[in-house]
Nucleic acid binder design. Structure first.
Length: 399
DNA sequence: TATTATGATTCCCG
DNA sequence: CGGGAATCATAATA
């Protein structure tokens, strides 16, 4: 895990920086800055005058020098030089010599650095971004949807859904930044690549440039840019992680369920006191009704069971209250005073009434452990067969 | 500010 | 893996 600067705040917003100047690829192009920029013309007169190898070599060196430094010169200057070089009568010969040299050295550098094995780190980041929904296809609406959901969350579950949509909108924000930057990078990359390719093509008139070389150069450029991209991806990943942890923190920062939600849960609990273990489906239903997750429902029931068991007396009041409420609701059928549980409608309530009636009677209630066994276990249930015993089970959930 | 209520987490068991 | 139990952390309340 390598980590770069975190980005969090103003991350990749300035993508145009692109430290191209230090590009290794450039090295190959103009790395040969000779400190001594001596005038290279004039000397060539002696080129054929002396067949002295030494002289000739020096002269060739001069020409080479010109070629090498050509990219350093101003445009017209370079243009002029180039023209001069092209017209030089030694040019064809030199060119072929260069080709030859190239051929030879080319062999040695053939195996230097060929294929890059798809940086595993990059793959990992890609996968992660994909999993987070940052990369990949636009998924419906993103921010807009989240925002609208947040604003229009009339009475449903203001807290949780609000936070959730907050998370989503932040995520989509990151997403859009990521995509913009990525696009910028890609554009810059292609731009730069074409530029370099043009340059090379241009140069290929004065010096041998094999397609293979161009290819290699392009690969180098791409590699460089992809490393920049990796950084972007990494930063994005980090941002997502931070956002996520903050979101989780927010979740950790306990928020009480809404009144309605606890009401629904309590109603279910007390109307199934003899067996307060909602099935998966029931949990789902409850979760839907309460606007919470299934695991939250599970948590709630876990807590409730244990706490109820621990101190039954304390919960008597509540138990009676809900039992009464449920009974009333059952009695009046659909009049429901104010139980806005939509979907499941009355669902629980009546059919399970058997157990809850057991609970109603004793307001003083001590031993209202109903079905609970002496050891405080629900599952044991009371007497072995118990004809009347409320087959609490799922007489309710109609669906 | 101390206490209680409560949702979540963790450990452990079968 | 679901549940019980203990515990944590924070919201709500006295």
């Amino acid at each position: 895990m390598l980590q770069q600067q975190p980005l969090t705040g103003n991350g990749p917003s300035n993508g145009r920086g692109l430290g191209v100047s230090g590009h290794p690829g450039m090295h190959a192009l103009n790395s040969v800055h000779q400190p001594s920029q001596h005038r290279s013309d004039g000397g060539e007169s002696g080129l054929e005058g002396t067949e002295n190898g030494h002289e000739t070599r020096r002269d060739i060196g001069d020409i080479l020098q010109q070629i090498m430094t050509i990219t350093d010169q101003s445009l017209d200057e370079a243009q002029a030089k180039k023209h001069a070089l092209n017209c030089h009568r030694m040019k064809p010969a030199l060119f072929s010599v260069l080709c030859e040299i190239k051929e030879k050295t080319g062999l040695s550098m053939r195996n230097t650095q060929e294929e890059e094995p798809q940086d595993p780190q990059l793959v990992r980041l890609d996968n992660m971004l994909l999993a987070e929904g940052v990369a990949g296809p636009e998924k419906g609406g993103g921010a807009a949807a989240a925002v609208s959901a947040a604003t229009s969350s009339g009475g449903m579950s203001p807290d949780s859904s609000l936070e959730h949509s907050d998370y989503k909108s932040k995520l989509s924000q990151i997403r859009s930044i990521y995509h913009t930057e990525l696009e910028k990078y890609e554009q810059a990359c292609t731009e730069f690549t074409t530029h370099v390719m043009n340059l090379l093509r241009e140069q290929s008139r004065t010096r041998p440039v094999t397609p293979r070389e161009i290819e290699r150069m392009v690969a180098i450029i791409h590699r460089k840019f992809s490393s920049i991209q990796t950084q972007l991806k990494q930063s994005t990943c980090e941002a997502v992680m931070i956002l996520r942890s903050r979101f989780l923190d927010a979740r950790r920062k306990r928020r009480n369920f809404s009144k309605q939600a606890t009401e629904v849960l309590n109603e279910y609990f007390y109307s199934h006191l003899s067996n307060p273990y909602p099935s998966e489906e029931a949990k789902e239903e409850l979760a839907k009704q309460c606007g919470i997750t299934i695991s939250q429902v599970s948590n709630w029931f876990g807590n409730k069971r244990i706490r109820y068991k621990k101190n039954i007396g304390k919960f008597q009041e509540e138990a009676n209250l809900y039992a009464m409420k449920t009974a009333l609701g059952a009695r009046q059928g659909e009049d429901s005073p104010h139980t806005p549980n939509s979907t499941g409608s009355g669902s629980f309530s009546l059919s399970g009434s058997a157990d809850m009636f057991l609970g109603v009677p004793s307001v003083n209630g001590e031993q209202s452990a109903y079905q609970m066994q002496a050891n405080g276990n629900w599952q044991g249930r009371n007497s072995p067969h118990s004809g009347t015993s409320p087959r609490t089970d799922h007489s309710d959930n109609s669906d």
